[in-house]
């Protein structure tokens, strides 16, 4: 990932996805937070993303119908 302080929305959502699996780097998350300060669309995406993770974590889903 590039060294810029300001991420594009694509980069931000990529970091956000990674963060859901605890695979984002320290500075990646920092840059994401900076992006979220001024980007409402990504804030919304991050919120929904976290919600999805929470829902799936709530119960170990068995996939047999």
């Amino acid at each position: 990932m590039s060294d810029k302080l300001f991420l594009s929305c694509d980069e931000a959502s990529h970091t956000c996805d990674k963060a859901q699996y605890k695979e984002a780097t320290l500075w990646g998350k920092m840059k994401l937070n900076i992006h979220l300060v001024y980007c409402a669309a990504c804030r919304k995406y991050a919120k929904n993303n976290a919600k999805l993770t929470r829902l799936i974590k709530r119960k170990p889903v068995t996939l047999e119908p």
């Binding site: 959502s13 990529h14 996805d17 990674k18 859901q20 929904n48 993303n49 999805l52 829902l55």
Partner: peptide
């Protein structure tokens, strides 16, 4: 990661509607 991103977006939208 691209596949995961698309899947997550779709899943979030779908669960938003149904749950």
């Amino acid at each position: 990661w691209v596949i995961i991103h698309r899947a997550r977006t779709a899943m979030a939208g779908c669960l938003e509607k149904n749950w």
